[in-house]
Amino acid sequence: MKLFNLFKKKRTGKMESSTWNTLSEFKDVQAILDKSNERPQLIYKHSTRCSVSFVLKDDLEKYAEQISQKADLNIVYVIQQRNISNAIATEFKIRHESPQAILLKDGEVIWKGSHWDVNAEEILNRLKSVTIEQT
């Protein structure tokens, strides 16, 4: 029974660590848009009702240290924050999907992926090319 309870706690969708900046208000979307002028921003749209979303979130968290050296990691819980998720789709003119990852630089979407296209290796490669272009 304890094992089940531990598993259930992990799947609540609540932030387990300081890995992610949680987007919970409209002003948070504008803030990361502004921050993207100084540093790339990763937005991960996570669904607490989707097993694929949990698998991909875990993958990103395994590489969080490497990713965070090049970009800030932001998360929106799409079930709990549907209005924020919709605002992101509208602001960046991309169709909402979850799970979904969006990379921003200089106020523009430089890459987006959904479902199994979301993986840490691809994100790190995209961030590497952004870093090379800046030097």
Rank of each mutant, 00 (worst) to 15 (best):
W116T: 14
F92K: 02
Q81Y: 04
F26N: 05
L60V: 03
E65N: 12
S17T: 14
V55D: 01
N5K: 15
S85L: 08
N119Q: 05
D106Q: 13
Q80Y: 07
I110N: 07
I79V: 15
K9T: 11
L103W: 07
R39E: 11
A87W: 00
K45F: 12
I67F: 06
D34R: 10
K62I: 01
R49N: 14
D28T: 06
I67R: 08
D117F: 05
I94C: 08
D117R: 13
K112L: 10
I102N: 10
R39W: 01
F4V: 12
R11T: 13
K57Y: 03
P99K: 07
R126F: 02
F92C: 07
A31D: 07
E97A: 12
D59S: 09
E38G: 11
S47E: 12
K62Y: 05
I75H: 00
E65T: 06
R95W: 06
V29G: 05
N86G: 00
E25P: 01
V55K: 10
I102T: 11
N5A: 11
S68P: 02
P40M: 04
K70I: 00
F54H: 09
Q66N: 12
N125C: 00
L3V: 14
R126S: 06
R49M: 11
I102Y: 09
K9F: 11
R82I: 02
K35H: 03
N86C: 00
L56D: 09
D28F: 02
N37G: 13
C50N: 15
K2P: 00
W20H: 01
V78F: 03
L3H: 04
E122K: 05
E61G: 01
I132R: 05
S47L: 09
E122W: 03
V55F: 09
H115W: 13
K35E: 11
S114Y: 14
T12Q: 15
F92D: 10
I88Y: 03
L73Q: 09
V78C: 02
L3Q: 13
F4W: 05
R95K: 14
I94N: 02
S114V: 03
L104Q: 09
G113S: 08
R49T: 14
N37M: 04
N74T: 01
K112V: 08
T135R: 06
Y63W: 02
E121N: 03
T90A: 06
L60F: 07
S53Q: 03
N119D: 12
I32F: 06
Q30K: 13
D117S: 11
K27Q: 13
D59F: 01
S17L: 01
S47Q: 08
